[in-house]
Amino acid sequence: MQKHGIKADVRQKKRSRKKEQQQYQEDNLLERKFIQIAPNLIWVSDTTELTYGRNNKVRLHVVLDLYDRYVFSYHISPTETAEAAIEAFKRAAKQAGTFAPMIHTDRGAAYTSKDFNNYLTSNNSKHSLSAPGTPADNAVIEHYWGDFKHIWMAHHSHPQTLAELKNLVK
């Protein structure tokens, strides 16, 4: 083809941005209704990266109840996986004695995975998702991360071991 000057004519599939935006709006069941009237109706979750020692990294998974905005479950794992997110929710259910009928998260790989969504379905819970690049859709937990990292963690000495980090998080 190159020798004879022939080029392939490949059309790019057109994306429907309106359809994608509509899907994101439909997926966001919470719709930024952060004030709740009772505990354990809606839990929000997110993960963040923490470091200890010389650039050793772990992921902190947190589950927060929107009613009192209290973190009642967390899990520290080496990477962000569906299994680690599920473990945080198992701990939350054990602590609360129930499972929230709605869970709101961002669109991280752990939360959009088949395993995580099957876990929510098996616990009769609906999954609400933030739109991509829209942290305001999960503002309560994003505010929590700000307090946790920039107030709590910044006012303590940098942990040198994983045990020190776990103790500081606890």
Rank of each mutant, 00 (worst) to 15 (best):
L50Y: 10
D65H: 04
R69Y: 06
G97T: 11
Y24F: 15
T81D: 06
F148A: 00
L168P: 01
A85K: 09
R11P: 00
D46A: 04
I35V: 12
R54Q: 14
K7I: 10
T47L: 13
Q2F: 12
E31S: 15
I103C: 06
E80C: 10
N55Y: 13
G97F: 03
Q12S: 12
H104E: 02
S113M: 02
A139K: 09
L41Y: 04
Y70A: 10
S77N: 08
D147V: 15
S113C: 04
M1G: 15
I37S: 15
N123S: 00
D65I: 00
M1T: 15
L41S: 05
T161Q: 06
H143R: 14
A154C: 02
T112S: 03
R69M: 08
Q160D: 06
V62A: 14
Q2M: 14
K33A: 07
S113T: 10
W152C: 01
D65K: 14
M102D: 04
K170W: 08
T134G: 01
W43F: 00
H158A: 12
K13D: 12
H104Y: 02
Y52P: 03
V63S: 05
A88T: 09
H61L: 08
N123R: 15
V169D: 07
L60V: 08
R11E: 14
E87G: 03
Q12P: 01
